[in-house]
Design a protein around this nucleic acid. Structure first.
Length: 521
DNA sequence: TTAGGGTTAG
């Protein structure tokens, strides 16, 4: 449903004014339509309406429990479920289904077992929907015997019963079990095939996934998406674009999920005209630009060099989410507009969006690239002390970069020492680069020593150190480092890059010239 | 009602 939250506010106001809030039907409809709205505030809003209704009926209880079961905080569904029992309202088969679904979502087997007991006492133990949900709950929590036992003892099974188990296997990457079950299944539908595809994709067996995909008798958009996102996650972007073409030839209409993956692939290979084609497709087919699509479009335009178009998409989008903001901040940052990135960040706070870890990676990286020292420190403090976000390696990395860039090398070194050292090598490396830029040989040697302890097989620290010696003419040290590298069997992989020219994507290996060119027009 | 495919980060 595309209804905006403000339209729902209006509907609510109308219902209050006209006294309709006392009508069970109107109130139910309102709660139901609010709780299926995708806006982040929709569920708390539906909940607040719900809590003002004196004697909610089961339908209302169920609606609110379902809303929480499908939300990012599924535990809340159980709180409501318990309130329902305390209020002496009678749970029905729907209530149990939603409550059990929520247990599955947060891996609450113990809670699930209690509800299962309750189901049996209520005499609903043979309900198909409840049993299917129980199978999925047990299987996804790793209680495979319980799940299998339920499935085997069901009086009437349907394809969802099999899929409930199959999907849990696939989700957990238990592909041998999934295969056995798939062969054993007495009925399959397109979803069964899709679970097999996404299961193989999830464990990185793309060729297996491709084989199942080829055998899938009737493919739907999810089948294609599973395969396309598989290639996208594996970084095989040119194959994403080829598959997208095949999909259109097969007459399957892409949806938001498809387009997001395809745009992401365009962004990675710099395929601007392909990306523009997707954008035009979205407009022409009236596909709604939700937060995901907007994020992917903004990212595609900024990675393909068109920050103006990225800003245009961003500004005209009405359904931004936190990722959309992150993506424009990151885009502005890579385009060297650090101040603009920070300005957008403040606007984001004013509009009431809560920044996450990624936001601060983008923001800190913008400060670092632009050399905004005071702002960077301020943002780091804001993140830790106001937003309570524990800094990760990426955040430390940006700060070390920033401090290193402006020449505060000792302060940067102190910061790296505060990090969990297991993860610190990338950051030490960045500090090593800063030492090189500022010609601080003494610190560089200390850092390189640290790096060789942490990851002796990593070529980049050797390379950086040798480059550094080379830049100040210490050729004997250069030779020594190179010899040590050879002695330890460390080799440097060549870099690779891709570029689109007139609709053809070319791939280059460093030092090797053109490897391949593919035509996408 | 139950099983499912998506973006942003040196």
């Amino acid at each position: 449903m595309a209804t905006s939250i403000s339209e729902l506010h209006q509907a609510h106001a109308h219902i209050l004014k006209s006294g309709l809030i006392h009508s069970t039907f109107a109130a139910s409809r309102l709660i139901a339509s609010v709780s299926t709205n995708s806006h982040a505030q929709a569920i708390p809003y539906a909940h607040s309406i719900f809590s003002r209704i004196p004697n909610p009926n089961s339908y209302m209880w169920n609606t609110i429990i379902r809303a929480y079961a499908n939300s990012p905080t599924p535990e809340a569904a159980l709180t409501i479920f318990h309130q329902m029992l305390l209020a002496s309202a009678l749970p029905d088969k729907y209530t149990f289904t939603f409550a059990l679904k929520s247990c599955g979502s947060f891996s609450g087997v113990e809670e699930g077992r209690q509800i299962h007991g309750h189901v049996l006492k209520t005499g609903l133990g043979d309900d198909l929907f409840i049993q299917n949900t129980l199978i999925h709950l047990y299987a996804s929590c790793g209680c495979i015997e319980d799940a299998r036992h339920l499935l085997d003892r069901m009086l009437e099974r349907d394809v969802v019963s099999w899929n409930a188990l199959l999907s849990a296997y696939a989700e957990k990457g238990l592909m041998e079990l999934a295969c056995q079950l798939f062969d054993e299944m007495t009925e399959r539908n397109v979803e069964s095939w899709n679970f097999m595809i996404s299961g193989y994709v999830g464990v990185g067996l793309l060729e297996e996934a491709r084989r199942v995909f080829a055998e899938t008798p009737v493919k739907n958009v999810v089948s294609w998406n599973a395969m396309i996102t598989g290639y996208a996650h594996a970084g095989r972007f040119s194959e994403v674009l080829v598959l997208f073409e095949d999909m259109q030839h097969a007459g399957v209409k892409p949806d938001n999920c498809t387009l997001v993956s395809v745009l992401s692939a365009c962004a990675h290979v710099g395929a601007l005209s392909q990306g523009e084609w997707v954008h035009a497709y979205i407009d022409k087919n009236g596909i709604s630009i939700d937060g995901f699509v907007a994020t992917a479009l903004v990212d595609m335009y900024s990675k393909c060099g068109s920050i103006e178009k990225a800003l245009e998409v961003f500004n005209s989008c009405l359904r931004k989410d936190i990722s959309t903001w992150n993506s424009i901040i990151s885009g502005l940052s890579t385009h060297g507009s650090g101040q603009h990135a920070l300005q957008i960040f403040s606007e984001m706070l004013v509009e009431g969006f809560i920044p996450n870890e990624v936001t601060f990676v983008c923001v800190l990286s913008a400060c670092s690239r632009a050399g905004l020292l005071d702002e960077g420190r301020e943002m780091f403090n804001l993140m830790v002390h106001v937003h309570g976000i524990q800094p990760t390696i990426e955040h430390y990395g940006c700060m070390v970069d920033l401090l290193g860039r402006v020449g505060l090398l000792e302060e940067a070194e102190e910061l790296v020492q505060k990090m969990p050292q297991k993860e610190a090598s990338v950051v030490w490396e960045s500090l090593l680069g800063a030492c090189r830029n500022h010609g601080n040989v003494e610190l560089a040697e200390r850092v390189a020593q640290k790096l060789l302890e942490l990851s002796p097989q990593e070529s980049s620290s050797f390379v950086q150190l040798s480059n550094m010696y080379a830049s100040i003419g210490r050729w004997k040290d250069v030779m020594e480092v190179r010899q040590k590298m050879r002695a330890q069997g460390v080799r440097k992989d060549p870099g690779c890059s891709m570029i689109e020219v007139d609709g053809t994507v070319y791939e280059f290996l460093a030092g090797e010239g053109l490897v391949s060119g593919k035509d996408f027009t």
